[in-house]
């Protein structure tokens, strides 16, 4: 094999290896993607490379909500139509997008970019709880809504945030959990029904 062909293969190998950083992409998918980009989508590949580079250079965390933005403060945080007295704490940008889709929340957000995970050594420092406390005690926020996941880690995160904010005189609330909208008991998982019974409320 000539030196040249070895080098070409090296570039391909590096691309396959690089693609594997994507979630859900194993060696086989990575190889398929690499061949596709090189064979049929060379222009698309150039755009992808440029977009990646541009995003890495420009995208950063919003100084107020910690979500991704290209500005110091993101558009949502600057919007005059949002209610600055409400702050909703969520784990990820995907969760934010989900809450936004409801069109029933008009307050602001704080994105943790994670959750407490004591067994993995992920503590308050890793998810920037000090920044959240600073944000929530800015004098404008009246209520902090904790919308972390209903996993053990999400619950622990919500608990500690609530404790810290309560000690600083900020009202906190937790989103409700139970049987999903349109849910028929027969088809809902037992864990959810069990928790819905515990969390039942008077009518």
């Amino acid at each position: 094999m000539s030196a040249e062909s070895v080098q070409t293969a090296k570039g391909l190998e590096r691309l396959i290896e690089a693609l594997r950083v994507l979630p859900g992409v194993g060696p086989r998918s990575a190889q398929r993607m690499a061949y596709h980009l090189l064979q049929h989508e060379r222009q698309g590949a150039t755009q992808l490379a440029q977009a990646l580079e541009a995003a890495l250079a420009r995208v950063r965390h919003c100084a107020r909500c910690n979500n991704f933005t290209e500005d110091e403060i993101c558009g949502l945080c600057r919007s005059p139509r949002r209610d600055p007295s409400l702050l909703c704490v969520i784990e990820t940008p995907a969760d934010l997008a989900m809450v936004e889709q409801t069109v029933s929340y008009s307050g602001l957000y704080f994105v943790l970019m994670g959750r407490l995970s004591p067994l993995d050594g992920i503590g308050p420092r890793e998810i920037g709880l000090d920044r959240l406390i600073a944000r929530a005690t800015d004098g404008q926020v009246q209520e902090v809504i904790l919308a972390t996941n209903f996993t053990n880690e999400g619950e622990a995160t919500a608990h500690y945030i609530a404790e810290m904010l309560r000690a600083r005189g900020i009202r906190t609330s937790r989103i409700a959990r139970g049987v999903p909208l349109g849910g028929e008991l027969e088809y809902v998982d037992v864990g959810t029904i069990s928790q819905a019974l515990i969390d039942r409320r008077g009518l």
Binding site: P118, L119, N152, E155, A156, H159, V190, S194, Q195, I198
Partner: peptide
């Protein structure tokens, strides 16, 4: 789901993580 156990919360939840780490 075997059920019959109430969910841990707050400090109890943190203690639960600790027990799990000891076992692991």
């Amino acid at each position: 789901w075997a059920g019959g156990q109430s969910a841990l919360s707050g400090v109890g939840l943190m203690c639960g993580f600790y027990l799990n780490e000891l076992l692991l």
